[in-house]
Simulated scan of single mutants.
Amino acid sequence: MTYVITQPCVDVKDKACVDECPVDCIYEGPRKMYINPDECVDCGACEPVCPVEAIFFEDDTPQEWADFRTADTEFFTELGSPGGAAVLGPLAHDHPIVAGAPLPTA
């Protein structure tokens, strides 16, 4: 099991979670942060610092955001486990679920 970053993070990306993650497993896409399930050690340090309450333990993800479990897993299918987000910096793509999410309205 791992943690998942869900819909409230889309277009917010506060990044407080990144500062708390002891293993650097939270990667940045253009619209959302992603937790690499192969690198996450399930410590839970990221969850309480998220100001928009977007991070959930995988089994506790609200049903309305269940697709984000898939997004966080599939996001790393091609990328694999590079060994830390800091090595790569911000990535140029989002998972299609995130990329297709409605844009915020003014």
Results as ranks from 00 to 15, higher is better:
1 M>V: 11
2 T>H: 15
3 Y>I: 10
4 V>G: 04
6 T>E: 11
10 V>G: 04
11 D>I: 01
11 D>Q: 07
13 K>N: 08
14 D>W: 04
15 K>V: 09
16 A>P: 01
19 D>H: 02
19 D>I: 13
19 D>L: 13
21 C>P: 04
23 V>W: 08
23 V>Y: 11
24 D>Q: 09
24 D>S: 13
26 I>H: 07
26 I>E: 00
27 Y>M: 04
27 Y>F: 12
29 G>C: 09
30 P>N: 10
31 R>V: 03
31 R>A: 10
32 K>D: 06
33 M>W: 06
33 M>K: 11
35 I>V: 15
38 D>H: 09
40 C>D: 05
41 V>T: 15
42 D>T: 14
49 V>K: 08
50 C>R: 10
50 C>N: 06
52 V>Y: 14
53 E>A: 15
55 I>R: 00
57 F>S: 02
60 D>P: 01
60 D>A: 05
62 P>Y: 07
62 P>W: 08
63 Q>Y: 10
66 A>S: 13
67 D>T: 03
67 D>P: 02
68 F>P: 00
70 T>S: 03
71 A>F: 01
73 T>F: 05
74 E>A: 07
75 F>M: 14
76 F>R: 09
78 E>Q: 14
79 L>Q: 02
79 L>W: 01
79 L>D: 00
80 G>N: 11
81 S>I: 01
85 A>Q: 08
86 A>S: 15
88 L>K: 11
88 L>E: 06
90 P>S: 12
92 A>D: 15
93 H>K: 02
93 H>T: 09
95 H>T: 00
96 P>M: 10
99 A>V: 03
99 A>I: 05
100 G>S: 11
101 A>R: 13
102 P>R: 14
103 L>H: 08
104 P>V: 05
105 T>L: 13
106 A>C: 07
106 A>S: 13
